[in-house]
């Protein structure tokens, strides 16, 4: 089992910093829903480096991102299954 980044959307949607989307080394891994104003993670692409956690805690000071065991996630968003379709995002991200 392994850790993946998980974003608390209640905290994230209060801000509009988008820093984690810019500092993640993986492409299209932390996605941003413009309608719901929140970032969320495509877990199939997350390599668990924790850079986003440092960015959210130290640079943005929002403390919205935690590392979490993949098995502890109730539901997951996987880019390889869903594809990159912002028009289909309804604001309910895992």
């Amino acid at each position: 089992m392994y850790l993946v980044a998980h974003i608390d959307q209640a905290i994230c949607s209060e801000t509009a910093c988008r820093l984690c989307t810019q500092y993640c080394p993986e492409a299209n891994t932390i996605l941003y829903d413009n309608a719901a104003k929140t970032a969320f993670v495509a877990v199939d692409r997350c390599k668990g480096c924790e850079i986003c956690v440092g960015i959210c805690d130290d640079l943005a000071k929002h403390h919205a991102i935690k590392m979490i065991m993949i098995t502890d996630l109730k539901s997951t968003f996987e880019l390889s299954k869903e594809g990159f379709r912002p028009d289909k995002w309804d604001g309910n991200h895992p």
Binding site: T21, Q22, E26, A27, N28, I30, Y32, D33, N34, A39
Partner: peptide, 16 residues
């Protein structure tokens, strides 16, 4: 970033 599809795809470089 995060709201458009990037030209870079998944790749085998190390985490972080």
């Amino acid at each position: 970033m995060g709201s458009f599809k990037e030209v870079l795809e998944e790749h085998p470089m190390c985490a972080g």
